[in-house]
Design a protein around this nucleic acid. Structure first.
Length: 297
DNA sequence: GAGCCCCGATATGCCGCTTA
DNA sequence: TAAGCGGCATATCGGGGCTC
C-alpha cells in the first residue's frame, strides 16, 4: 500500500511534465531543476506507483500503459486542486444553501420578514429556517450547530462572540386607539396605575425594564397579562384597556394601535447580529450578514 | 537545540546509439 | 569496432524543515 504522505503535489506535477516531455532532462529544465533531481523524482514516482512508469527507448523515455492511465488521473487531480485554490466566487442568484436564523418572534417580524422578502429577489435558492430563541443560551445553539445566525439584544451577546450592531431600540407605550387615555398626557403616576400586558421571552414573567424604571421613581405597576409570543398582542390591545410597553420598531407595525412616548425613562437596548466562528470566513454567510445589516438600516 | 529526514545539486558511472 | 555523445542512474554532500 502506497503511503499517501509520500506522494506530494510536486511529484504529481513532475509526473505530468514527464508525460508531456518523455525526456527526463527536458522535464528537469521545465521544472528548473537538474536532471539528477528529476531522476530522483522519477524514482520516487516509481516507488509510489509500483510501476516503472517510463522505459528507456532510443531517444528518451516511453511511458508505460500504467503511466498513461495514471497521467489522466493526475492531470484531473491537479486541475481540481487548482480550482480549489481559486478564491470562491459568490453568485447570489445561484446560491443554494440553508440559513438558520435564531430570533425571538418579535425580531422575526421586524428583521427576518424583510430579509426573506429581499432574499426571494436576490437569492431565490436560499432556504431560510426561522427558529425561536427564547431563554436558550445562544452560544450553545451555535456549538450544537442548530443555528447559523442569531438576531438578539445585546444582553445575549458576550464579547467573545462574532457580532455586529443592527440598530438601537427604544420603548414606546401602546394602547388601543379607542383607549380613554389615547392622546391624553400621561404622568408617571397615572402610567403606573394602568393595567399592562407585557412580553416575557422566558415565559411567565411579570416584571421587566419598565418595572425597573418605575422602581427608580418609587412606583410600581400591575401586569395583568404576560405573553411569550406576539400573536395575541394586536387584538389584545385593540379589544381591551390593556397597555403595553413595546420596542418601537415592532410597535409601529401594529394596526389600529395608538403609540406615545412613555412618561418615564426606560432603558432601551441594542439589537445585535451574532454568528459562530464556523461561518466567520464563509463568503456566502458574509454576504447574507451584509444583507441582514442592510435591511435593518 | 540536536537529530533525523527529505530534497536538490554536483560529480561520476553506465548504457545505448551514431558515426567514422 | 572504438570513440563520441546523449541521456539516465547513483553516490555523496549540504541546506532546510520537522519533531522531540
Amino acid at each position: 500500500m502506497t503511503d499517501i504522505r509520500k506522494l506530494d503535489l510536486n511529484l504529481l506535477k513532475a509526473f505530468v511534465i514527464l508525460l508531456d516531455e518523455c525526456n527526463v532532462s527536458r522535464a528537469a529544465q521545465r521544472l528548473s531543476i537538474t536532471q539528477p533531481a528529476m531522476s530522483g523524482i522519477l524514482n520516487r514516482l516509481r516507488e509510489s506507483f509500483h510501476d516503472p512508469l517510463f522505459v528507456r527507448v532510443q531517444h528518451g523515455m516511453q511511458p508505460t500503459d500504467r503511466a498513461v492511465q495514471l497521467g489522466q488521473i493526475a492531470r484531473q487531480v491537479l486541475q481540481d486542486i487548482t480550482s480549489m485554490l481559486q478564491p470562491p466566487v459568490l453568485e447570489p442568484e445561484n446560491l443554494a444553501m440553508t440559513l438558520r436564523i435564531g430570533a425571538t418572534d418579535y425580531v422575526q417580524k421586524i428583521v427576518a420578514l424583510p430579509l426573506i422578502l429581499r432574499l426571494r429577489r436576490l437569492a431565490p435558492h436560499v432556504q431560510i429556517a426561522l427558529l425561536p430563541v427564547q431563554g436558550q443560551n445562544i452560544k450553545t445553539l451555535f456549538e450544537q450547530n442548530k443555528i447559523d445566525l442569531a438576531l438578539v439584544s445585546h444582553f445575549h451577546v458576550t464579547p467573545d462572540m462574532h457580532q455586529q450592531k443592527l440598530y438601537d431600540e427604544h420603548y414606546v407605550c401602546a394602547m388601543s386607539r379607542e383607549h380613554p387615555l389615547a392622546n391624553a398626557p400621561l404622568t408617571a403616576e397615572r402610567f403606573s396605575q394602568l393595567p399592562f400586558a407585557m412580553f416575557s421571552y422566558n415565559g411567565g414573567e411579570f416584571s421587566g425594564a419598565t418595572d425597573l424604571a418605575l422602581q427608580a421613581l418609587g412606583l410600581n405597576r400591575k401586569v395583568m397579562v404576560s405573553l411569550n409570543n406576539i400573536v395575541l398582542l394586536p387584538e389584545l390591545l385593540q379589544g381591551s384597556d390593556l397597555v403595553a410597553v413595546l420596542p418601537a420598531h415592532f410597535a409601529q407595525t401594529l394596526p389600529n394601535v395608538h403609540l406615545q412616548a412613555p412618561p418615564i425613562d426606560i432603558a432601551g437596548f441594542t439589537m445585535m447580529m451574532t454568528w459562530h466562528e464556523r461561518t466567520q470566513h464563509d463568503v456566502a454567510h458574509q454576504w447574507l450578514r451584509q444583507i441582514v445589516a442592510e435591511v435593518c438600516q
